[in-house]
Amino acid sequence: MKKRLFALLLALLLLTAFAPAALAEDTAPAEESAPVEETAAPEETAQPEETAETAFPYVLDQAGLLSDSQRQALEQKAAALSEQHQCSLYVVTVQDHTSLNYDVYEAAKGVFQYYDLGWGAEKNGVILLLSMNARDYAFAGHGSGETICSRESSWLIEDEFLDNFRNNDWSGGFDDFLDACDTQLTKLESGEDVNAGAEIVTGPDGLDYHSYNNPYETREPIILPRVLAVIFIPIAVALGVCSVFKAQMKTAKEATRADEYLVPHSMKLSRKEDIFTHRTESRTLIETDSGHRAGGGGGGSSFHSGGGFSGRSGKF
């Protein structure tokens, strides 16, 4: 029931953007339909029904973040890289992912699975989903995409694009995403370690932080604050102590209160009114998802794996 509901919502959500995009794209990624055999004729590999099923654009900008020219340029780049690595690279933007799934990572995975995305029989691919209302992102990989979306490798990929998104540079961010996937897939193909170079710090909240952006890390103070501390803290302490000593030298002060002369229990209240006048209310949205807890730019991200997918989600 849940799956059916997801499918219905997803279909409705993507229908308007997806169909015209598919029609408009002469170079729709028919190559996703099946593994391309070098010995096989193109007509034989491109099954009509498979083409219809997988005529999903590489760049689906439902949130309207990109201009036509930007979208087309990214589409072409994604198509070229997908073909080069035989691993489809998708970018999807939506205004609100919660109609698909409250969890942005599950929503990204759901799109990939529902539309049977991915390259060839292995369904190699990586999908990046941006949800604009809550500034959530998630990317999930399958097949060779899953390999480059390991905990460390996914950290290296998101490290490339997150700064762009935090500065609202959407086109640049997607471009960096594609480049980062290209780099990691190239490493994978050449037998290099895709996880090399990742410096992940896991905070007590369970989220992964970039080592340079870990709010829980005790950073080495830079030299100037230390010098200032060495100068001003002793001065402040010495001034405080000397002020106390100086205050001891002047003991005569005019009295301002008469507490000692108040007759005990003599206070008699003749009027005691507490009248309710009005009520004001303020509401604050609670961030419940663990990936959301880290808040906006600069927060941590969550690694996910299982079910043939792995990936990462967080906020930008």
Binding site: L269, E273, F276, T280, E281
Partner: peptide, 16 residues
Amino acid sequence: RITETNHFDVRRAGTL
């Protein structure tokens, strides 16, 4: 998270 603030007009009169 809802923060509800109730406002009151309070008066105290008496002798000491």
